[in-house]
Write a protein that binds this DNA or RNA. Structure first.
Lengths: 100, 100
DNA sequence: TGGTAAGTTCGACACTGATCGAACAGGCAC
DNA sequence: GTGCCTGTTCGATCAGTGTCGAACTTACCA
């Protein structure tokens, strides 16, 4: 199950992954906190299983990767890889103002 | 029904509108052809009603607008408006390579 | 050796949304 | 006017997916 480092997916898969409100919030938190955060810090108000489902979508799209840090699962934003595949897409989305 | 010139929607709505394969193709064609094209030139392989449904989604997200030219309905890409709201998002997506 | 905590996986369920055909509404040509 | 063409709207259907609880795995600690 080393799907931790997959190639970045098709543009449509990446966009579909980012378009979900829950997942966009996860990416914003990862970006704000420097890119590597324990899973549980990335969501509020949803169950563990739902969060894990969203992690899987993001991982399979190549937007995040999973790593073990001191026995804890961390998620890491793969900003450079996504930028290399689709320059400007993810960075401009993360730079956009959250809806007011 | 002058929803032809709506404000650009929330980022999530814009992303959700763009993430669909049919709609992304529509936007690519609009971009390639200079921004204003008759409806029927923007899709293949789907029914008129389905296409109209997608137009409505794009229009409500503020990504395109509708205008009448010589009795024909044209759709126009609102690239400047979207860029003003979310700089770089739409332009980088349109600049990205179509999936190989 | 338990016990706890964190993530994942698995069904199951509900809701959203993409799709279609059919009916309707304007414009244009004849 | 009548017809034709284009696009929209309306119901209905169906697939996709977001959601949950429960069971399972793994890692750490006492």
């Amino acid at each position: 199950m080393d799907d931790d480092q997959l190639p970045v997916g098709e543009l449509q898969d990446v966009l579909a992954a980012i378009a979900d409100p829950v997942r966009l919030e996860m990416l914003r938190r990862l970006d704000r906190d420097g890119g590597s955060v324990a899973c549980s810090r990335l969501y509020d108000g949803i169950s563990k299983s739902t969060a894990s489902h969203h992690f899987k979508i993001l991982r399979e799209a190549g937007v995040i990767e999973r790593s073990m840090v001191a026995g804890q699962t961390h998620q890491t934003l793969r900003l450079e890889d996504v930028e290399a595949a689709y320059p400007g897409v993810l960075s401009s989305i993360l730079a956009a103002q959250p809806a007011r």
